[in-house]
Structures are given as structure tokens and as C-alpha cells.
């Protein structure tokens, strides 16, 4: 598996990836700018979750939430809620653990920001194919070399895994016993890392020859086989999103939102 991307026919999937990226960045800017914990929570409930449902990736998002985020939130709530050093308004106490209002608010603030950030990013990744993102970004003016580095690093992971898998298989074929739990497997994999990296480096040399043979970098303005639609409505939408985020930040800075 290369990415988390899920192929679905939905309006969210069809959006220009740059629009989705701008929306994500706007959300991140807003939730970290405003001090109120209920605003990030509101964004999660009113924007992120509906978007996931509309894109028919809600189930996967929930699963990822349970695996990735929930444990983190629980730890955060316990540590900050019960052991917040500056907490004065004690609600409940048992030994050294004191549940304070300040600790609760702090963990809610951090937790809701974190949720908006992680869930928003997940919806983005779940609904955006990396190839389409790269194309859209290059179309929007990003350098093709930077696009190459990003795409290549996305693809190098599965290629790396594939290689590690085949070498491990070859080692077993030469008598290496790995059926002995994760520790044994890890011990078997450890000596693999150096040669794998070295192998990849030799590859880079050969690959750069192959890339240059195909005129990579010969022109700053390459054309593109795949074209990502970018209707006027989305371009306006992006500016509005950016303006909204900027406005919120200004309002926070000048003290209207406190």
C-alpha cells in the first residue's frame, strides 16, 4: 500500500487538490490561532466529519481515529486534566491526582486542536491521490523538481518494503529462522538496513542517469499528461478561505477574539 488514499466517486474527491490543501491549511491556522477550545471542536463536527461522510470515507476515518488519536487524547486528558501544575479550581482529588478546571480546559484546547489537525489531514489524504496532488501543485506553479522529490519519497517506501521483504525471504531461504515473535524478526531485519540503504544509494546514481536521459529538468516549464480541473469557483473559494483564515488571525492579534 502506497498511501491511505481511497478511491471513491465523490464531490470531495473531485475538488482540486490545491483547494483541499488550502482549506486544510486555513483550518490549521484558525484552530491554532483562536484560544477557545470549542471552535476547533466545532470545525471537526461541522466541517471535517461531514466532509468525510460526503466523501464516503467516514468508516476509515473513524478507524484511524480510534487507532491513532484516541489513545493520545486519553493520555492527554489524564496527564493534563489530573496533573496540570497551574490548576487551582479543584473539582476532585485523590492522592496526588487533582482534577482541575484549568487542566480540563487546557487538555480540551490541545485535544480539540490536535483532533482538527489530524482528522483534517486524514480526510485530505484519504480523498486526494498523491499523483493528482503533484499534478495540481505543478500546475499551480510549484517547481517540478520539488514535485519529483515529494512523489519519489512517497513511492520509495513501498519499493523499500518490497526490497526488504525479498531480502528477508532470501535470508530465510538460506536458513535464517524468523518464526520466533517480533523481537526475532526485528533482529533479523536490523542487519538489513545498512545494505538496503547502500543499495538504494547505488540505485540513485543509476536512476539519475535514467532521469537525465529522459530530459528531466531540461525545461522549467514541462507540460503534463494529466490535467486537473481548476474551475473559477474553486479559485475564488480558495481566496475566500485564505482571507477568512487571515481575518481570524488579525482579529486574534488585535484582541477582538480573546
Amino acid at each position: 500500500m502506497t498511501t491511505l488514499y481511497l478511491e471513491r466517486a465523490s464531490a470531495v474527491h473531485r475538488l482540486n487538490p490545491v483547494t483541499k490543501l488550502v482549506a486544510l491549511l486555513a483550518i490549521i491556522a484558525i484552530v491554532f490561532a483562536v484560544p477557545q477550545w470549542w471552535i476547533p471542536l466545532g470545525i471537526v463536527v461541522l466541517v471535517v466529519v461531514p466532509a468525510a461522510v460526503l466523501a464516503r470515507v467516514g468508516g476509515r476515518l473513524l478507524r484511524l481515529f480510534l487507532i491513532l488519536l484516541l489513545p493520545l487524547l486519553v493520555v492527554l486528558f489524564i496527564v493534563q486534566g489530573f496533573f496540570f501544575p497551574d490548576g487551582t479550581t479543584v473539582l476532585w482529588q485523590w492522592g496526588p491526582a487533582r482534577l482541575t478546571v484549568e487542566g480540563l480546559v487546557f487538555s480540551l484546547t490541545i485535544g480539540s486542536r490536535l483532533s482538527a489537525l489530524v482528522l483534517g489531514s486524514l480526510v485530505f489524504v484519504l480523498t486526494t491521490h498523491p499523483a493528482r496532488l503533484m499534478t495540481a501543485l505543478t500546475q499551480a506553479g510549484m517547481s517540478s523538481k520539488i514535485a519529483y522529490v515529494i512523489s519519489a519519497s512517497l513511492q520509495i517506501i513501498p519499493a523499500f518494503q518490497e526490497r526488504a521483504r525479498s531480502i528477508l525471504l532470501a535470508q530465510q531461504a538460506r536458513g535464517l529462522e524468523i518464526a520466533g515473535g517480533p523481537l526475532r524478526r526485528a533482529r533479523a531485519l536490523l542487519p538489513l538496513i545498512a545494505p538496503l540503504v547502500l543499495g538504494m544509494i547505488t540505485d540513485v546514481d543509476e536512476r539519475s542517469t535514467a532521469m537525465e536521459a529522459r530530459a528531466f529538468g531540461a525545461t522549467p516549464r514541462p507540460t503534463s499528461l494529466t490535467v486537473v480541473d481548476d474551475p473559477l469557483s474553486e479559485r475564488i473559494g480558495r481566496w475566500l478561505l485564505a482571507a477568512a483564515a487571515a481575518a481570524v488571525i488579525v482579529l486574534v492579534v488585535v484582541g477582538v477574539i480573546a
Binding site: A170, Q172, A173, E177, P191
Partner: peptide, 24 residues
């Protein structure tokens, strides 16, 4: 039998040596 056990009886040379060679 595991691959490792079977390796006592069967040696296998991969088509692509780079999928097999790993030592320094």
C-alpha cells in the same frame, strides 16, 4: 515446514541477485 527448515534440503538462487545479496 518453515522456509528456514526447508533450506536444509533446498537451496534457491534468485533470478535477480540484488534481491538476495545483502552482506558487506
Amino acid at each position: 515446514k518453515s522456509i528456514a527448515e526447508l533450506s536444509h534440503r533446498v537451496g534457491y538462487v534468485f533470478q535477480n541477485p540484488d534481491e538476495q545479496i545483502f552482506a558487506r
